[in-house]
Design a protein around this nucleic acid. Structure first.
Length: 841
DNA sequence: TATCCTGTCCTTTTT
DNA sequence: GGACAGGATA
């Protein structure tokens, strides 16, 4: 079954023979002339391990794609002999396009250019039968990473990893319990429902021990390439001491269901390669050259996967940037890239340092920040793009004010302001740390009618109605898909509640059949009556009928899909729904059916959807982009706003609490990613007050702000905005307040250079409660802090008058007459009698 | 079985 | 503050 001839035939079917090695060999290579020396070195170092350290905006994709072309062109490998892995479908698509463009033809013939997951699916479909229960549970395992690392030390060994693993004879057919090649891929939703069932079955309180938490634990283990047997004892306490046991049960259920979750796709392939060295060897010979994009994002399982495949020839080229490793929280190991030279002795390390994206002020600002991290491989980015604008920094009163200001800046920027060329809305991005920050911008932009688009967020295929519809399709194409059946059995409502569903479950379990069959038996035995019985009978009949129609030549899968959605009553359900979302959901269903057009049948579509959660809605209108910093990686914009640079928000408190210095460093890399997205104008801002979980909280500027070298920063006072436009009350107190506190530190350069966060704290305690200087600026400056006494009546720009009920460092607890009790930073409060000229709003 | 209320949680997210 | 899930209620 693993016959290689068949495998080749399989390849040939998808491949354009036009790219054959012979045809390409010894052609001139004009594309090399378009590279800078470092890029060219990276492209020409074809054999042996290569680490391409590509800083932000240094033309990494160009180097990578040219390398592929060069491999083909020199006849080193055919298109089907290059394994080229990315993390996202988008990156894979872009690479395909660019390789195609360089070659001047399509690259149909590169079957192994794709995401880790899609390539693993391809492999697993071919070798599903090797995934036995035994393999899935990982019996006899030691920690595969430990094994790999020990062998890494004896690095000269040829087939290192394999020598530590006991191969077992190929006898999959003898074991009935294994995956079949038509296995389904579960998404997080399915996963959680399944886990919940298991948790309940284990007699645990689902409320105290939520499925989401368990799935997090299991994912974490899978990311580390631990099968249940390999989970180290140090993890035994996980999930109320039941984690490992539940993991085992979960894997068992998945095999029973003929299903994999995302983690399994990698884990199973790694297990297969480890257990069947002969098979691995075939693939090692097959994939003559391996290229990996975003290597800093690989987790342990991916790392092992790569090590196994590259173990023979070691022709592996990893591209990445340790400074842009921002996915540690989902299992990525920066260590993988830091360790590359140890893993692959003799590796050539090539640094791409010429940045083609940003002006030098922006680049210098980013470099200044990232230098705060230890444990870097180190790169020095440079550019000949000219100095450009300094990074602009501005403080605001609160989050809404920040959003308002940014809105105005964008509008002004369209016309061109401050000597900067006019920018269209498409050229502007707002990058936030956490998605809840987006709200202030959406609110504001809706009021002023500024078009925006939110990138990221709930994906099309994750929407409830889409998942329901797809569950119907799944039940039709594979009736044994119990999770899909459970999802739709009572959607729309068919009078089949918990009790009825339990009966179905019982019937199915007793007879060892899938739920649909269980339902059929239940009906035959008259184990269920009334309305429910009638409805269930109808549903089961429908599923049968749709299933038959799926094989009907005369009915297109699109018509079938429409039929399923209509006859099941699903469309009607939403038509009758009066909630405001209903029309949108119907719209989405239509879009879903439209998406079917690109596929030959329903199962082809389902396969695609399982792996491709793309949400690239392209529309023509010019819009400002709003997204998280994570979502922005790999993108670039002429104008970038980076709001919310406040300690606790960014860097995120949680990140620091849970992961200490490691967490902080990842946050810093995020800051680096953020700044380096900007081509021409980069504006960082922070607010003095922010509502967190409904509570007003005083915020201090992010420590990262102080890490930007002063000479690359221009501090905006916002004076043009504070005075004009709105209420006198807002004037100095609001915007001016924070801005002027920055002002003061700019006036005093030494102060700016010191770690501002500490300084602010120190200051608030040290400075004597001095005599207020003449301007309001002083009143709102930091030193006023301990001037207050309990019970004192004070005035606050936003909340009005109140009395102090508590003092805690530089924060005051104040019971406001109108706004109620709040915690406020002292600098934003004045003694009530001092507030003289201020106009309460 | 449907609906309302109450308690809990609360970065980042691809596949 | 608000989304969401689960339990209590009609």
């Amino acid at each position: 079954m693993n016959d290689f001839d068949e495998f080749d035939a399989f390849e040939g079917a998808s491949g354009g023979g036009s790219l054959s090695q012979r045809a390409m060999a010894a052609r001139p290579a004009p594309y090399l002339d378009e590279l800078n020396p470092a890029q060219r070195a990276a492209v020409e170092a074809l054999d042996g391990p290569v680490l391409m350290l590509a800083g932000a905006g240094t033309g990494k994709t160009k180097a990578l794609t040219t390398r592929i072309v060069h491999l083909l062109n020199t006849g080193r490998a055919g298109p089907h002999e290059i394994l080229s892995v990315t993390f996202t479908n988008k990156a894979a698509r872009e690479m395909k396009e660019r390789v195609g463009r360089l070659l001047g033809q399509t690259v149909e013939g590169m079957p192994w250019l794709g995401t880790f997951h899609s390539i693993c699916v391809k492999l697993l479909r071919r070798h599903a039968e090797l995934v036995t229960l035994d393999l899935a549970l990982g019996a006899g395992g030691e920690d595969p990473l430990a094994a790999a690392q020990t062998t890494a030390q004896a690095a000269a060994q040829q087939d290192d990893v394999l020598e530590d693993l006991t191969g077992q004879p190929f006898a999959p057919a003898a074991i009935p319990n294994h995956l079949k090649s038509n296995f389904t891929i579960l998404d997080t939703d399915d996963q959680n429902r399944l886990l919940k069932q298991l948790i309940e079955a284990a007699g645990m309180d689902v409320k105290r021990w939520p499925a989401r938490q368990l799935s997090g634990v299991i994912d974490h283990w899978k990311n580390r390439a631990w099968t249940p047997e390999q989970v180290p004892t140090s993890e035994a306490a996980a999930f109320n001491n039941r984690g490992i046991e539940l993991y085992k049960q979960y894997q068992r259920r998945l095999i029973e269901l003929n299903a994999c979750d995302f983690g399994d796709l990698l884990l199973h392939v790694v297990s297969i390669f480890q257990r069947y060295p002969d098979l691995l060897d075939q693939y090692r010979r097959r994939f003559k050259y391996i290229l990996v994009d975003e290597y800093q994002d690989t987790n342990v399982a991916q790392y092992l996967w790569l090590r196994l495949l590259a173990g023979g020839h070691k022709n592996i080229c990893c591209v990445g940037d340790d400074d842009q490793s921002i996915y540690g929280w989902r299992g990525a190991e920066v260590g993988n890239i830091l360790r590359f030279e140890k893993d692959f002795p003799g590796a050539e390390v090539i640094r791409l340092e010429q940045n083609y994206r940003s002006t030098s002020h922006i680049l210098a600002a980013a470099s200044g920040v990232i230098q705060g991290n230890s444990n870097r491989l180190g790169k020095t980015l440079w550019t000949d793009q000219g100095d450009g604008e300094k990074v602009r920094l501005i403080g605001h009163w609160d989050g809404e004010e920040e959003a308002r200001w940014i809105g105005e800046e964008i509008e002004a920027g369209q016309k061109g302001a401050r000597g900067v060329r006019p920018h269209g809305l498409d050229e502007v991005a707002i990058l936030v740390r956490a998605s809840h920050q987006m709200r202030a911008f959406e609110d504001r932009f809706l009021t002023i009618g500024l078009p925006y688009r939110v990138i990221g967020g709930p994906r099309f295929y994750e929407r409830m109605e889409i998942r329901d519809a797809m569950a119907y399709f799944r039940v039709v194409t594979s009736p044994a898909d119990d999770l899909a059946f459970e999802r739709i059995v009572n959607t729309p409502k068919r009078g089949l509640g918990d009790k009825a569903q339990q009966k179905i479950q019982m019937a199915a379990r007793q007879n060892g059949v899938p739920l649909v069959e269980g339902a059929r038996l239940l009906l035959q035995d008259k184990g269920i009556g009334g309305k429910g019985a009638k409805e269930l009978a109808l549903l089961v009949d429908n599923i049968d009928r749709w299933g038959r129609l799926a094989g009907d030549e005369d009915l297109s899968h699109i018509e079938l899909a429409e039929m399923i959605l209509d006859e099941s009553g699903y469309t009607t359900m939403w038509q009758n729904d009066k909630t405001p979302e209903a029309p949108g959901r119907l719209e989405n269903l239509k879009e879903l059916v439209k998406a079917l057009e690109q596929f030959e049948n329903l199962s082809g579509f389902l396969e695609h959807v399982a792996l491709i959660m793309d949400n690239d809605s392209q529309d023509a209108e010019q819009k400002v982009s709003i997204m998280t910093l994570h979502a922005a990686k790999g993108l670039e914009f002429p104008v970038v706003f980076l709001p919310g640079w406040e300690d606790g928000l960014f860097p995120s408190q949680r990140s620091m609490d849970e992961n200490g210095v490691k967490g902080l460093e990842e946050e810093r890399r995020l800051a680096y990613v953020g700044i380096t997205r900007a081509e021409e104008v980069c504006t960082i801002s922070f607010a003095g007050n922010r509502r967190v979980y409904g509570q007003w909280q005083a915020q201090l500027p992010s420590r990262f702000i102080d890490e930007i070298p002063e000479e690359h920063v221009e501090v905006l006072t916002g004076s043009g905005y504070a005075g004009g436009g709105y209420g006198g009350g807002m004037g100095m107190g609001g915007l001016g307040g924070v801005a002027s506190s920055i002002d003061s530190r700019v006036a005093d350069a030494n102060v700016y250079n010191s770690p501002g966060w500490k300084r602010m704290q120190a200051r608030s305690h040290q400075r004597p409660v001095g005599q207020p200087k003449e301007s309001l600026k002083t009143v709102i400056d930091l030193q006023a802090v301990s001037a207050y006494t309990l019970g004192e009546r004070v005035f606050h720009q936003k909340f009005g008058y109140g009395s102090i009920t508590g003092i805690e460092g530089d924060k005051l607890e104040i019971d406001f007459e109108k706004a109620g009790p709040k915690k406020v930073v002292a600098k934003f409060v004045t003694a009530a009698n001092d507030a003289g000229g201020d106009v309460p709003f």
